[in-house]
Structure formats: C-alpha cells, structure tokens
Amino acid sequence: MMRALYLVPLALFLFFAGLAAFMLNQPKQQDVPSQMIAQPLPEFSLQPAIAGMPGVRRADLVGGQPRLLNIWASWCLPCIAEAPHLEALQSQGVEIIGIAVRDRPEAVADFLGRYGNPYTRIGADDISSLMIEIGASGVPETYVIDAEGNIRYQHIGDVRADTVPLLLEKLEEVR
C-alpha cells in the first residue's frame, strides 16, 4: 500500500513530461487575436501618407458598403507578396483603405509605383497609434469594417490567394 503511494509522484511527473513533450512539438499558435473585434472603431484622424491622396479619419469608414482596412508599410516584405491579392479584391469592387505604418512619403510612393495601388485613401500612422488602438499585433493585417464602423473580422499576416474568397465572404456576411 505504502509502496504504491511512493509511485504517485513519479506517475504525475511522467504525465507532465509526456504532455510537455507533446506540446513542445506542436506548432505554436503565436497570433494574438485583437480584443477590438466586434467593437466600434475608435475615433482617429491620420494625415495623408503621400501627396495627392486623402488621409483617413474614422468617418471615412462609416456609411455605404463594408470596407477593408489594410495595415501595411513599404518596409514590410510580406506586404509586397500581398499586393497583387489586394488588387484582385479591389477589382471585385471592394474599397480598401490603407494605413502606412512608420513610413516616409517617398518610400510609400515608390512602393505604390512598383507594386500597384489598391487603396482609395492612405493614412500615415507614424507612431503606430491606430495599430495599438485596434489591437493589431504586427504588419500586415487586414480588418473587415462594416458600414456602421464596427470591426468585424481580423486577418493576421499577408493576404494570400486563398484569403481573397474568405475576405469576400466576410464582407458579404456583414453587409
């Protein structure tokens, strides 16, 4: 009886070690979903990121059709990869509003010249203030905003070919 009792710590430890070994080899889900999903967009007003295109205020994302809010930057490599897919979304009639994070006007213009410009407006978020307020954890991220200005869906990472139909579906859902 006592002997069996002395085996309990070993059994508990083996269970833990097995669990830990299993979890160590699991792909780590590092994405932190925004706490702002299903919340209204906060009040904000960003200066234009380049001359010749308007900046972005909260009011620009309210009324009419649902829109996509795309957080990107000219210095971000995955943003180059997602550029053609954003253009595909735009060609299907989706309005995409861009937020250029910690960027310079000439670098933004250069990026748009090379990889295309799917945006109707681009705001300059020079101190990541909007990023923090909407709970973005990195660049790029794409948000579905409904016509009332509520954040309805967050896509973390670059938009890929298979993300395009997903985003179209989400936009349809909140219409």
Partner: peptide, 26 residues
C-alpha cells in the same frame, strides 16, 4: 523550442530518475 527540448530531457533524467529511486527506496 530546441533548448526547451534539451531542458525537458534533463528534467526527465533528473526528476524522473530521482522519483523512480524514491519509489523503490522510500
């Protein structure tokens, strides 16, 4: 994670080993 696996292996060796000795000797 690789370092994690190493520490886990050490943990298994020392703690698993000592608990096994404990179970036999206690």
């Amino acid at each position: 994670p690789e370092r994690g696996s190493f520490i886990l292996a050490l943990l298994g060796l020392y703690i698993g080993g000592s608990l096994a000795i404990f179970a036999v000797r206690a």
